[in-house]
Design a protein around this nucleic acid. Structure first.
Length: 335
DNA sequence: AACGCGGGGGG
DNA sequence: CCCCCAGCGTT
């Protein structure tokens, strides 16, 4: 069955499946505009399983727009620690402040897209799920599903190009009278059945509409080119004296990890010839960069500048660190 | 249009 | 080891 000739029955099959197969996620069992907004920001480029514990903690501490708007930035960042893409937290904080002050409140998709951190995907999600607007979401799940349903063999340069290519199809398939549920059903199908590797076609509710499954080309759809990963090496300094660890505080206006602490770069605190000992070598990845970090214990007197701070060991848990650095510091302190 | 932004899951 | 994930803002 061709998808675009049978959109009515397709929507029905999808909705029937979603009604019983959906996971009981906290923003579904207890829905609200605020919870929808927070869940969508946290879910950007992040698997649901990963962000769930963050969502629960967030709701305990910032239960509504007003509570978030009044919270100090440091507190907000701390609750995002480890989740990555920290501009999402800063944007969500800014959004809450704007939302509280805004009259009239934003209603339409266009209204929402004016707010910080809200782009085409998130504005469609919020306006359809919480406000009943017939806007189609197009995320990675939807792209994958539609590329398979239509067995689209085009090669896309990047994810953005694929999203643009499938937006008209997503809009054609959208159940306009039930857009929020339809959108969530599409994404749920992608997350639990139409998987990237080894999709569960035998239990797929819309298998009859899937051109790729008929040809066995599911796993080859969609075709999206990937950027090569770049390898980088960094040397870090470990300076622990009198129960205090020397840390570098990243400037608030830095694009990357703003306001967070990290182990200082070795060259900022020690000269090339000063005595040092390699304690550990660790790897992490940031987007398409693979970073290998070598941590050296510095034995000479360290150079100190304004970006460096001595942090008492017992205070380390209260500051904001990247996930990997927090983990490594914990390991080294335990030695 | 291309790039930078995190961290974890899963093959 | 690799790719991908309920994308957005900047250039």
């Amino acid at each position: 069955m061709d998808l675009l000739s049978h959109t009515i029955t397709f929507r029905h099959a999808l909705a029937q499946w979603y009604a019983t197969a959906q996971r009981p996620l906290p923003w579904r069992t207890q829905p609200s505009l605020y919870r929808t907004v927070v869940s969508e920001l946290m879910a950007q480029q992040t698997q649901i399983k990963t962000m769930l514990p963050y969502f629960e903690r967030w709701m305990q501490r910032f239960p509504d727009f007003a509570a978030l708007a009044e919270a100090p930035a440091e507190d907000v960042l701390k609750h995002w620690e480890g989740l990555g893409y920290y501009s999402r937290a800063r944007n969500l904080h800014k959004l809450a402040k704007e939302y509280v002050a805004l009259e009239p409140k934003p209603r339409s998709r266009e209204d929402w897209q004016q707010l910080p951190g809200i782009g085409p995907y998130t504005s469609a999600a919020i306006s359809s799920i919480a406000l009943g607007e017939p806007a189609a979401v197009v995320d990675g799940n939807v792209v994958r599903i539609l590329a398979r349903l239509t067995d689209d063999a085009r090669v896309f340069k990047n994810n953005g190009e694929a999203v643009k290519a499938f937006t008209p199809t997503a809009e054609a398939v959208l159940d306009q009278g039930n857009a929020g549920e339809h959108n969530q059903a599409m994404m749920e199908l992608g997350a639990t059945v139409c998987l990237k590797h080894k999709p569960l076609c035998t239990v797929c509710p819309v298998l009859a509409y899937c051109a790729a499954s008929r040809k066995g080309s599911q796993e080859a759809r969609p075709k999206i080119e990937r950027k090569a990963t770049v390898k980088v090496e960094v040397e870090r300094a470990w300076v622990l004296q009198a129960g205090k660890l020397l840390l570098h505080r990243i400037a608030e206006d830095s694009g990357q990890l703003a306001g967070q602490y990290e182990l200082p770069r070795l060259e900022t605190v020690a000269s090339p010839r000063s005595a040092k000992q390699l304690l550990a070598s660790k790897s992490r990845s940031i987007t398409h960069r693979r970073i290998k970090e070598h941590i050296y214990q510095v034995k000479a007197k360290p150079r100190i500048d304004a970006s460096l701070e001595w942090v008492r060991v017992e205070d380390i848990e209260r500051i904001t660190l990247s996930g990997p650095h927090r983990r490594w510091i914990g390991e080294l302190l335990a030695r």
